[in-house]
Design a protein around this nucleic acid. Sequence first.
DNA 1: TTTTTTATAATTGTCGACAATCCAATGCTT
DNA 2: AAGCATTGGATTGTCGACAATTATAAAAAA
Lengths: 228, 228
Amino acid sequence: MLATEFKQAITAADRVLVQIRTAIVEGDIPAGTKISEPELARRYDLSRAPLREALARLERCHLIERTPNAGARVVKLSIEGLRSLYQLREELEGLACRLAAEHMTEQDIAEVRALLDQHLSTQRVREGESYYQEAGDVDFHYRVILGSKNPYLINILSDELYFLVRMYRVQLGMNGPRVSRAFDEHKAIINAIANRDGELADLLMRRHIAASRRNIEQQLLQQGTSHD
Amino acid sequence: MLATEFKQAITAADRVLVQIRTAIVEGDIPAGTKISEPELARRYDLSRAPLREALARLERCHLIERTPNAGARVVKLSIEGLRSLYQLREELEGLACRLAAEHMTEQDIAEVRALLDQHLSTQRVREGESYYQEAGDVDFHYRVILGSKNPYLINILSDELYFLVRMYRVQLGMNGPRVSRAFDEHKAIINAIANRDGELADLLMRRHIAASRRNIEQQLLQQGTSHD
DNA sequence: TTTTTTATAATTGTCGACAATCCAATGCTT
DNA sequence: AAGCATTGGATTGTCGACAATTATAAAAAA
């Protein structure tokens, strides 16, 4: 066996977790839907045991809300929820930036820069397709988070909060000039990290996230007032 | 039915979760122990289904570490772990203080002050018994965290990080003059919150937590060098 | 008509058994 | 004797069925 391939057994619970998770994030299972264990078990063709394991993890990342003996519902997107979530995100990713400026190696930084260049080229090709921007943005933030080298911080941000963040972004979308500006902001952040200026990276990251929040907030307000 | 009593069915998984969790935090199940599902099922006299649910939640609050198809182990306490954990705690509870200064009602604040007075009297009676100090401290921090009124922040701190924090504190203990100083620091923090001075409350809380960390660090170092 | 009660149905929580996977010890080959 | 394949034991993952609880809706009483 090669040294590169870790033998982590992919279990049925893992598979169905990924399936349901993306279904919720992408909106295939609409927000607010009641979750029925027997129905999902039939739909994904497995027993309830691994399904419940998957549901437990979905609850962990705030994509569903469970009440004992009463079932689970897909979380609803709201302005208050968005603000609470992004309040935390600003703080945590700001911290991640300060730590990344301290702990990232030169090679780590070089890799992120290569990543950004790659994003730029693919974005020029696929102009306007927001999905690639979405994936690229997540990827950039993920790298910085890993760069903090704090396992608890990494766990909270990438395993718990980020799927909900993606849900807001996918369902309410990035639009307008933000898509193109994000690249420059990413560049500025990695530059600050490369200069080992944690405070600046922190500040830039907070502004970056705050701008993103305002963008989604507007979408939420427009959507809320238009057809209701 | 009265309006005060929420009908949340206590399930078997909840019970065994509390039992095992306290057993780990108090050290009855030593750090680093291999977890055997059949053994624990016999010991707590229930099936493996609710036990696995409990283990999943224990993993969530970082008290055990699982690898698929290979079982789970109780987490080991280490200096690096402590630093990573408290780094996050400083940041998050600092944020909690800023938000609490903004969102706590006058009544909330009055209740916390009553709590502190109560702690002071019980501490005078039970001088030296660190357990009460431990419980009182947790209680104080818990109140401030709730005062932030940010559900995600509350969840992360009180449901995920705090049991591990307690494990460090219970197993490595509070000692010396810190026990008595903590009261004054708590007082200062709630005063700052009452004055709606979030920045000061933030600063004081960070110092408070940093002091606690240094205290536990020393215990860890002494223990590590003495009998090894 | 409104409220309370009751019974039915569906859902969740739990159980014991089976299947798949991994760890350790043993025996075989070089 | 050292390294590697193999087998045995134990553990985890999964399944289908049962028990307990809750929500729904119909029926009875105010």
